[in-house]
Design a binder for these strands. Structure first.
Lengths: 371, 371
DNA sequence: ACCACATAATGAAGCGCTTCATATTGAAGA
DNA sequence: TCTTCAATATGAAGCGCTTCATTATGTGGT
């Protein structure tokens, strides 16, 4: 038995091309009866063509279902209206918020975002930046100010505007939108100290390639020094910035002979993990141990107990980064601030140090004061 | 007084061009002493040039800091090695997980991802798909099988491979990787019914443009029908798929004369919000009201009480979607499954219905059975 | 009517790459 | 030494768009 469907197909194939080429601007121009140049201008600068021409072109576009070819446009115009946004991870809602406003703002300025994630792996960051640059972007937004030299070199050599977020520094290349990480943890640590804590632990991320982490640890260390205390190196836990990271810190802490009475985490995710793991081990928060986070993600306030944390203006960072990168690209100047402020948000997960853990009279006094 | 810096600048400007052009492949070829074509092949198919040529080209690339121009390549080759991934939001960790494995898998297959978010706004979805197509992608991955006609038409007309995730259907165009949304809530509802609940509320997303939402509601309705019950329309709350959405549902529920004894949420985020809001209103979970979620995000197990939910193989979906879209593009066939399975994960937020709320003998019986 | 001048439309020259028909090379066989 | 035929290399033709020098069109002033 013959399958007629096949016969039809074979007959038609040579006539109806298998792959009818997608319409180009030239097709549009031809159909509209105008020149290629006019068609192009009708689409990109509609107020510079006569209404009649515009209408003709628009109708042809409609009729053909024309969609412009971005590669050709990019090649000819040397612009892509695309920004590369490179984040460590999307598991942290703080970055999601920031990305969200970044992309909203850029959309409003008629730019698109291409997102890339490097999972906190430094070499991966370079690969990703390079891939994005190769693809063609008019600007790049990165998190943090410390990056491999070759990242900066690549950007500078290609003269691609760069905005660095989440931190304030004098970078090798590019501009910053961020906050003072040192101050953030410094102020939080002050609050912790004010409640009589002396044995304070820190859960930070890997410090090796993360300057923010180093600055934050320094903020705590300096606050403690001012109080005549010292940050014990064995109470600084370098863990992933994740829920799991926070859990692991607590698992290590329960093994300690002498446990800390407060735990300052550098992300809310870690704090949430720590909080939960404390429950597993019967450690009461804040009675036995205080826990603080950073970012003030939506969930922080919903925890039990609600999480004391540092509010980071993530959304503002996204907006400002978007405006600044566009400003750099278009050599316009938005008169925006470069720095945003964090603030400590006090909730129940931070309480007084357990009685009898204070060695210094000053601490005993401060504990009473805020009790 | 004369500012000499200016003089120097003005003098140099005509000589040292302000914008030394980035090196092109032609520069590389020239420096290496080979033809443009050979240089191109050295980079794209290194095993088809002599080792000597390859070395020459590599050295020239190195020396010039050459980075290829993706637009030119895309224009000439008609391929971009880029996949457009379009998600409703990144606030839901379930999507983040899925994106994560999608992009990892695609990276391994030598493809990049451009991400776009539409915030559950249907018109925005089209804009975003179009923007991505215009930019140039070899394939697109979408969430859900119901989309505006023009989305499908655009993809089909341009013959861009399309993979639809999170759901199984016979779409107008493209292929599916997903699970049976109806079955997921059907099974969950069975579990709820088995604990004697009769007044069951549902928190879903907007059903108008979201077929998944409709399928899930149908799953619950059908399970209830089998038990001789009916899903009350006024107990179906269409709320955003967010923490806030869950909170709002509870706010409406506390106003009700007769409250439901169980709340089936369609995302864990909603369930988490609901859980918290119950606390605010003094509703004990699960004693006064049971709450269930969907997705089984990491946080679900950390809630208090831990959340009964439906585990969705989000990571698997990402991997399978990546492999399938590449398969479609390269006309290769990975022998992968098209469907993945969900399963109910029982935790403490689902409990027995409060005594005295059962109207049917069967329900009373089943309550005793599982008590 | 005529010129001057702004406003629009035209057509061609690339943008930097891939690809393919063609030319060149060199090693093996006669 | 001379073919022969693979393996490589070459050079030119575009890919579809923007842009710009140029030409055409039309408006108001005299």
């Amino acid at each position: 038995m013959e399958d007629t469907r096949f016969r039809v197909f074979l007959k038609m194939a040579p006539m109806t091309n298998v792959d009818p080429p997608r319409p180009t601007l030239e097709d549009v121009a031809k159909l509209a009866g105008v020149s290629l140049g006019s068609a192009s201008r009708a689409l990109s600068v509609p107020d510079q063509v006569k209404p009649k021409t515009l209408a003709l072109v628009r109708r042809a576009v409609e009729q053909l279902g024309y969609v412009s070819n971005g590669a050709a446009r990019a090649l000819a115009s040397k612009r892509t209206r695309t920004i590369g946004a490179i984040y460590p991870t999307m598991y942290n809602p703080a970055f999601v918020e920031s990305l969200h406003t970044l992309q909203q703002t850029l959309w409003g300025l008629n730019y698109q975002v291409v997102l890339a994630i490097h999972e906190y792996i430094p070499e991966r960051e370079y690969d990703v930046v390079r891939a994005v640059v190769e693809r063609g972007v008019d600007g790049v937004v990165l998190v943090g100010t410390a990056h491999e030299d070759r990242v900066f070199d690549l950007m500078r050599q290609r003269r691609i505007p760069l905005v660095l977020t989440w931190q304030l520094d004098e970078p090798r290349y590019g501009e910053c939108i961020g906050f003072d990480n040192w101050r953030a943890t410094y102020e939080m640590t002050k609050e912790v100290l004010a409640r009589g804590h002396e044995r304070i632990a820190i859960v930070c991320g890997s410090m090796e390639h993360n300057q923010r982490a180093r600055q934050r640890v320094a903020g705590s260390a300096d606050a403690m020094k001012e109080a005549g205390l010292e940050l014990a190196p064995d109470l600084v836990f370098e863990e992933p910035f994740s829920i799991e990271g926070g859990k692991d810190a607590i698992k290590k802490i329960v093994e300690l002979k002498e446990r800390p009475t407060a735990l300052i985490c550098h992300t809310d995710l870690q704090a949430i993990g720590a909080l939960h793991e404390c429950g597993v081990h019967g450690i009461r928060v804040p009675e036995d141990m205080s826990i603080t986070g950073m970012d003030d993600i939506e969930l922080a306030a919903l925890m039990n107990p609600p999480l004391t944390t540092i509010r980071v203006p993530t959304k503002e960072i996204g907006v400002l980064a978007a405006r600044r990168i566009v400003g750099l690209i278009e050599k316009r100047t938005f008169d925006d601030p470069r720095s945003v402020r964090c603030e400590v948000v006090l909730r129940d997960s931070l309480g007084n140090a357990p009685a009898g853990t204070q060695r210094t009279p000053a601490a005993r006094k401060s504990r009473r004061k805020t009790a």
